[in-house]
Design a protein around this nucleic acid. Structure first.
Lengths: 241, 241
DNA sequence: GTATTTGTGCCACTTGAGTAGCATTGTTTA
DNA sequence: TAAACAATGCTACTCAAGTGGCACAAATAC
């Protein structure tokens, strides 16, 4: 499955969009990429982090990968990050070299570039001017996690659902990206809830004309309405106090 | 309030224990410390992050500082990190240079070493061999956040409370550190709950002899029992599925 | 083409966490 | 020392979220 860097260069736009690789000079960029090779994983492949990821670092070229935790008790799942093109993992292992007790699963057929973790560390040590890129990326991820914590603790399920939908519309269109074709169960995992509850609230949103639903498909019908509902939820909560 | 580095050297053990400064060579260490100055904040001083912290980076010498978020709606609080001696902040701003929408409040009279964020960045750029320290620390914090997310989403309040207590006993003793003198309200903020609910569960733990409670004081009476209760909770939850 | 699996929609039901309120008891301050 | 304040202990109540179950539809496998 190994390929030469020349072939890799066709992914330039994807890679330049990756937080770790943007604004690199051509020399560093090429040297780094020469250490990568391409891998393809079929849909729904699942790995425990420590087995494999511990030794490689990946950048996604196409397809989606979810990083999630499983409740050791009930088997409930929580999706921490839904990774897509230009995202990379596992940042945790890269940062501190420890195991990371999470699972990864491909949601589509996925193409990645892989590099041995040790190679990447070596390259960083040799080109320390690129550390700030990594720091930036780490900061970004930490902010996402922090927002997740406060959302789960402050915000109720219907509001979290609306926020999820709004966050995933592309630009000013009504087009849902990334999550439009997920089953209710996966949507529930993204906001820390359950299939039945998410379905209940999706039905409410459908009934008021904000969205349309079919099997493995959610479509935004009225983004403005969703935004108004969000404001309303915030108002209602504060009014009650 | 400025002091010379000679005075600072008396804090060596505290500073060497700080994740950012351990295993530095003496030269880098001294050069870095020379840029710091000491500050003292009275008890219960509260700052919004972006006003002040944006420009300085702090290492705590003594006393506790909580980093927390406030629900814009209800005014509910969530304590994200309870920082103490050898901890530092704000890591988020240091990493990516952006504002960080959190509050900081001193819980005790607090002594810190402060350094302008720009100085620290400059020092890092000049001594890039020390970036890995920072990466390590960032990784550690991310893991804490990730654990927080999954705890809030998977684990019920009584269990989170027991985990908080166990996590804060010093060594093998029964001594609660860091949180032993907090009011119920602050304990609630630490696990994402409310005063009344936390009190309810603390009473239960008291009634079965695991802890003793008085005003602004929680004491472990039977650590073994707490650990057994924790196992029991995990068992009960999984048994129900 | 049939069987099986996967996802949906919707019911009735349970429950843990949050809320409101208040009396009581320490602690601080004037 | 009195008054104000802060923290606690408890009660009764509400409600959102989760649970269990089932019929039905769509997709997939055989």
């Amino acid at each position: 499955m190994k390929r030469e860097p020349e072939n890799i260069s066709k992914y330039d736009t994807i890679l330049r969009n990756c937080d770790l690789l943007n604004n690199l000079d051509t020399a560093s960029y090429k040297e780094l990429l020469s250490r990568f090779h391409e891998e393809i994983w079929p849909k729904n492949t699942c790995f425990l982090n420590k087995e494999k990821w511990f030794h490689n670092f990946y950048i996604i070229l196409s397809g989606r990968v979810k990083m999630y935790r499983v409740d050791p008790r009930g088997g409930k799942e929580l999706t921490l990050f839904l990774l897509t093109r230009s995202d990379s993992f596992d940042l945790f292992c890269l940062l501190d070299g420890c195991e990371h007790p999470v699972f990864y699963q491909s949601i589509d057929r996925v193409k990645v570039l892989a590099v041995p973790m040790a190679d990447l560390r070596e390259w960083l040590a040799k080109n320390p001017q690129h550390y700030p890129n990594l720091l930036n990326y780490a900061g970004k991820q930490m902010r996402l996690l922090e927002n997740f914590v406060s959302d789960i603790s402050f915000v109720d399920i219907p509001t979290r659902l609306i926020k999820l939908l709004i966050r995933n519309v592309k630009g000013d269109s009504n087009n849902l990206e990334l999550i439009h074709d997920l089953p209710n169960k996966e949507i529930a995992n993204l906001i820390g809830s359950t299939r039945a509850v998410v379905n209940r609230h999706l039905q409410n949103l459908r009934k008021c004309g904000a969205i349309e639903i079919s099997r493995n498909h959610v479509e935004i019908k009225n983004l403005r309405l969703l935004q108004r509902l969000l404001k309303l939820q915030e108002f209602r909560s504060s009014g009650q106090k």
